[in-house]
Every structure is written in C-alpha cells, then in structure tokens.
C-alpha cells in the first residue's frame, strides 16, 4: 500500500481568508449602521411630509438640542442642569433602589429556595405582585412613605426585586445532587455549605435575575421621578413634556436607552467574571 496523499490542484481560486474575515467583521458594524440610516431616513421623510404630529424629525431634534449635547454638565442652579447631571442623579437613585433589591432579593430567594413550605406559601404572592407595573406602585409608595424621595427608591426597589427572588430561588433549588452529596459526606458546616457550595452553585441564576432586574430598575426611573421632581432624567422628560420641548424629550429618551443598555452589559460582564461553571 502506498502512502501518497493527493494534493489539491489549486489554492489560488480560494478567496483570501484574511480579507474574508475582515469583511465578516465589518458586516457587524455596517449592517446596524445601515438599519439605523434607514430608520432615521424614514423618520425624516415622514416628518417632512407632516405625518409625525408634534414629533420633530431627526435633523430638527439635533439642531434643537445641540446645546444640550455639546455641554452635558452645565449647572445653572435649581433644575436647570445638563443631561449628564440629570443622568447621574437618576443613576444614583437606581443604584440605591437596585442594591436594596439585590440584597433583599438574594436573601429572600435563598430562603424560599431552601425552605419548601415557605416557598409554597409565598409563591402566589410573588407571582401576582411581580406583574404589577411600576406606575401602579406610585400611589402606594406615596401613601406608605409620605415622602417623595424614599417613595421613588421604593418604586425602583419593588420593580426590580421580583426577578432576583425568583431566579435565586430556582438557582438554589437546582443545586446539583452531586454537590449536596459531597457536602453531606464531608459533613460541611452550614456556613461552609452556604458560601462554598450553595452560593457559587446558584451564582449563574442569581446573575440572570440581577440582569433582568437592572433593566427593570432603570425602566422604573421615569415613573419614580414623576414623584420626586427636581433633578433626574425621568423628571426631565416629564418636565420637557409639560413645557412642550419635544426635541429634548427625544434626546433624553435616546440617553435613557443608551444608559439602560450600558447597565445591562455591565451586569452581564460582572456575571461573566464572577460565575464559574464547568
């Protein structure tokens, strides 16, 4: 038997692999840009044709809001601050409400994930309350807390807490039997079991909950700041609507979207760094 390997006849007809890869990557930039262009173009055309009601076209929005875009950190006292300040102030509220939701959510989730009777008892309440929209919590928050600022934090908290509870509980329940066996053969103490097995094992679920929750917390900001007034991107939108500054609203909405996207990515990468799975 011979050991002759047949060589392919020509390599030249194949396209350059480096070029091909570059093009492959470029499409991930070009196609979204194309879609954005089509969207903005259609919007511009519709508004030029007078089909968008009071909503200005994209060009109009940019010319109207140019001062806001170029100087996000001006401060002319009271509520008249740049969008950078407005966003930071909102982020602060969200950070507070969200941290509270994370602490309470993970704790309650672990509790109802471990104690079955508690889970059965609490499940209907959780299932019903988690569907209540942030706006509906507003009057309750106000009535209960009497003050605007804690009320706003509460609205963010109560909107974000449910997915953290549910995902943590599922994560705890899904702790693989193998790990439980190791723990019982080694007779691990409760604290060691909790920190070395339960928490890391449920971590990927917990982070799924945290990621959904950060989106919801940010969603609640507009509702929450209808309460507080003052400085904040949510109130800025409400305030701009009351004084018919449509272009400002659109710019603020774009910023809200971008920040929400950034928050989602942040929690995602945090989870990626912290969660170890096999």
């Amino acid at each position: 038997m011979t050991n002759e390997v047949v060589r392919p006849l020509s390599v030249e007809s194949q396209p350059n692999p480096a070029l091909q890869e570059w093009w492959e990557r470029a499409t991930y930039v070009l196609l979204p840009l194309l879609a954005l262009g089509v969207f903005l173009g259609a919007w511009q055309l519709l508004s030029a044709a007078g089909k968008t009601g009071q909503i200005p076209g994209p060009v109009q929005v940019i010319t109207d809001t140019l001062p806001l875009i170029v100087d996000p950190f001006f401060d002319r006292g009271a509520n008249d601050k740049g969008l950078g300040w407005q966003l930071l102030s909102s982020l602060q509220r969200v950070a507070l409400g969200y941290t509270l939701a994370a602490v309470v959510g993970v704790s309650v989730g672990i509790l109802i994930g471990t104690v079955k009777p508690l889970r059965i008892a609490v499940d209907p309440i959780v299932q019903v309350l988690r569907t209540v929209p942030p706006l509906a919590w507003l009057p309750i928050a106000l009535a209960a807390l009497n003050q605007a600022e804690p009320g706003a934090i509460f609205v963010i908290f109560i909107t974000a807490v449910w997915p953290i509870i549910l995902n943590t509980a599922v994560g705890v329940m899904q702790t693989p039997q193998d790990y439980r066996n190791v723990a019982s053969v080694l007779k691990l103490s409760r604290a060691t079991y909790f920190f070395s097995i339960l928490l890391p094992s449920a971590a990927s679920y917990i982070f799924t909950g945290l990621r959904i929750a950060v989106g919801l917390a940010w969603l609640a900001i507009v509702a929450a700041e209808m309460l507080t007034g003052g400085v904040g991107i949510g109130f800025f939108i409400w305030d701009s609507y009351n004084s018919s500054r449509m272009s400002d609203i659109i710019l603020a909405v774009v910023y809200v979207g971008l920040v929400g996207f950034a928050l989602d990515r942040l929690v995602y990468y945090l989870g990626k760094v912290l969660v170890v799975s096999e």
Binding site: D178, K187, V276
Partner: peptide, 17 residues
C-alpha cells in the same frame, strides 16, 4: 454520611469554582 466513609464518584463531583 460522614468523612470516615469517603466516596469517589464516577463524575468526580468536584466543585468547579
């Protein structure tokens, strides 16, 4: 169960983290 009867499981059962 107890550590005087230690088990080596087929699927290793190591903690991945």
């Amino acid at each position: 169960p107890g550590p005087d009867r230690m088990v080596v499981f087929q699927n290793y059962s190591l903690l991945p983290w």
